[in-house]
Structures are given as structure tokens and as C-alpha cells.
Design a protein around this nucleic acid. Structure first.
Lengths: 191, 191
DNA sequence: GGGAGCATGTAACGGGTTACATGATTGG
DNA sequence: CCAATCATGTAACCCGTTACATGCTCCC
């Protein structure tokens, strides 16, 4: 923890997420970061657009939280590799310690539609629920393979923890969705 | 369903949510809408800022989807009451029928922090998890009372359905969070 | 009298997406 | 050779929030 708590510019969570990706110690390009976000952050947070990642990287560099390697150009010359700096690490540690709890934000379009069920075609509603179950299924598949990779090394212990949480989360999403469909059926036949 | 599918300006989901609030047939002010959103939409979607609601209402009015009563001023003169129009109803029905499935968006700050556990203080992490459980508990309380109200009239059948879903969702959030805490404990003692 | 809640709005700002533009490399 | 993927970036745009401004009413 840095003792001098300068009037650090308050960064959006996205910036911390990107810096967090770098905090595992590897040198990565914006492109790499995007792919990785797609296969990790996406499941419980969200994956920023690639253009935004490039923007955040430049901001982080400006703050001295990340740097691009200048010395000894190697492999692909058109690839710009970022690495976290000690200052960046410190800032991230401070953020993790200080950031106040914020309730998760959920925007569940499916539920919005059910909520407006008095104006919807019941079959279309069921269709949407099924689509959602299918989507969740594929998320589960991706999560499972992500976890298999993460569990190969203790370095990924915390990500693996989160992936285990994710598998439970999406499993429960499925149960919830089938419950919703059942309730819908019951309501329409019963009433 | 309107047969003439004019090149309807694509509206953001927020606009449909606001129009949806009006679709239950009552005349409401922006202020009313905000309070209602806070106690319903918030649990599975999100509650727009009041300033945005005012903005959306003006847009909906411009599109002919909502109107403000001009005739016979009554009660409070400084209150502007909106009502859905038949065109607005039709547009909403079309949206419900046509809008493609979109996966729910989840931004779970707590999980982002756990994901970065290698840089976090384990006790601070547990603290955050507990805060989350407490928050969820209060959501559950609010949901339960919302459902009690909704179940008084068949008019609220679909909202009641969604509230039942919500209770299950937040209950499962709690289970998931305690599971996460247990995994965290196990990891730190076991390894 | 004064604070809490009711009620409506504007302006500035930033966050984030989409679309566009460009070009290198790899593999079928 | 052509498509897919790798790779980086800019510009326009809009969504949504915060902060600000105003004023009324109710009740302690």
C-alpha cells in the first residue's frame, strides 16, 4: 500500500479490470487482453469492446500503471505488448482494499419481457426462455473448460475459485429459468 | 400488431421499460415512475436515473407513444401525468414479439475482486462477501413485500411471477456467496 | 422556521459501443 | 489467392449519471 495517497484520479472499474488482467504478470497486447477477457471476465463481469481496451491501456500507460516494452524489439513488430508496473500493482492493491462494496448490476432482458407478459405472446415467451436456457448451457461449457485450464496451476487459484462460482451460478440460472417456465405454464392453464 | 412496420426508430431498452411501466394503464408522473422502477424493475433490470426518465418520457411523447393529459387540470398543477397511447401499446407489443434474445448482463464487482484475490487481503475479501450477503438479504425483504402487494390482484400476475423468480434468484445468490466464502476458507487453510 | 419529500428539469461529462480504416500473417 | 485471424487505432454517437437549479407542500 502506498503511504502517499495522492489525489489519484478515480478510475472506472474497467480500467482496474484491464490492469487486473495484466497483474498476472505477463506481457500482453490489447488483442490478447480482449481474447482473455472474453474467456474469463465475461462470465461474471463483462468484456469491454476492443477499442475501449486500447483506450484504457493508453490511459494506464499515461498514469504509469503500465508500460510497453521499448527495448529489444522482437517477434512481431506490429504488436504492442503491455506490462504492469510496480506503481500499477500498488494502485491495484489499494483499489482492492479501499473500493467500497457495490451491489452487482443485473440487466436481465428476459425477465423484463416476462414482466410485461400481459402484452406478450405466451409461446414467444417460452421460446425466449428456451433460448436463454440454451445460452446458459453454452456458457457452462465454456466455463468448465476454462476451469480445467485454471486448475492446472496454483497461480490461477483465484480465477478457478471464481469459475467454480460461475458454474454454480449458471447452473442455478438454468434451474431458475425452468422454474419460471413451469410457473408460466401453471399460471396459464390454472387461471 | 401494426401491419405497417414503418422504419421505427430503434429505441434503447430503457425506453421500452419506461413505456412498459405505463402499459399497466395508469397515469403516472416521472417521479412516480422512478419510485415504481426502484421497487420493481430494479431487482432484475435496473432503475434509470430520474433525469433519464424525464428524458425518455419526452421522447416517448414525441413518438406518439405516450401523452400527457391536457384537458381538465386537476389536483396538483405542477404534476405532469403521462399515459400510454394505443400506438405506444402497439409498438411495445411489437417490440416484445420481435426483439431478439439478448443474454443478461451481469457486472459482479465482488467476483472481480475475488478474481484478483492474489493481490487482496483475504479478510477484506471475506468482509466484502459478507456485505454482499447482507445486501442480498435486504433485496429479498423488499422483494417479498413487493410480491405480497402484487399477489392481491390478477392484474399483477406477471410481475408477481417475476418477483417469485427474484426471490429464488437472490436466495441462490446467498447460497452461492456462502459457498464462495467456504471455498476461500478451504483454499487458504488447505494450501 | 426548516427539513424531508414531492416534482421537474438542464448541462456537462464520461463511459462504452459501432462503424470505419488499415495492414500484416497464416493456412487451406 | 483468398479468407480468416491477428493487430491497432480513430471518430461519431448515444446512453446514462452527477451535479446543479428551482420551487412547492407537508409536518414537526
Amino acid at each position: 500500500m502506498s503511504i502517499a495517497n495522492e489525489p489519484r484520479t478515480r478510475l472506472p472499474a474497467t480500467a482496474w479490470a484491464v490492469l487486473g488482467l495484466l497483474s498476472f504478470g505477463r506481457e500482453l497486447s490489447g488483442y490478447d487482453l480482449k481474447k482473455w477477457a472474453d474467456s474469463s471476465l465475461r462470465f461474471f463481469y463483462w468484456s469491454p469492446a476492443i477499442s475501449q481496451i486500447y483506450g484504457e491501456l493508453r490511459r494506464l500507460e499515461g498514469l504509469g500503471y503500465a508500460e510497453t516494452r521499448t527495448a529489444s524489439q522482437d517477434e512481431l513488430r506490429n504488436k504492442r505488448l503491455y506490462r504492469i508496473t510496480p506503481a500499477g500493482r500498488d494502485a491495484l492493491i489499494d483499489w482492492l482494499a479501499d473500493a467500497p462494496y457495490e451491489p452487482p448490476m443485473l440487466k436481465h432482458g428476459l425477465l423484463l419481457r416476462v414482466w410485461l407478459g400481459h402484452l406478450a405472446d405466451p409461446d414467444r415467451l417460452r421460446e425466449a426462455i428456451d433460448e436463454h436456457i440454451a445460452h446458459t448451457e453454452s456458457m457452462l461449457g465454456e466455463l468448465r473448460s476454462a476451469r480445467e485450464i485454471a486448475e492446472t496451476s496454483p497461480e490461477w487459484a483465484y480465477p478457478a475459485l471464481v469459475e467454480r462460482w460461475g458454474e454454480r451460478y449458471y447452473t442455478s440460472e438454468q434451474i431458475l429459468a425452468t422454474g419460471l417456465r413451469d410457473d408460466l405454464d401453471a399460471m396459464e392453464s390454472g387461471d
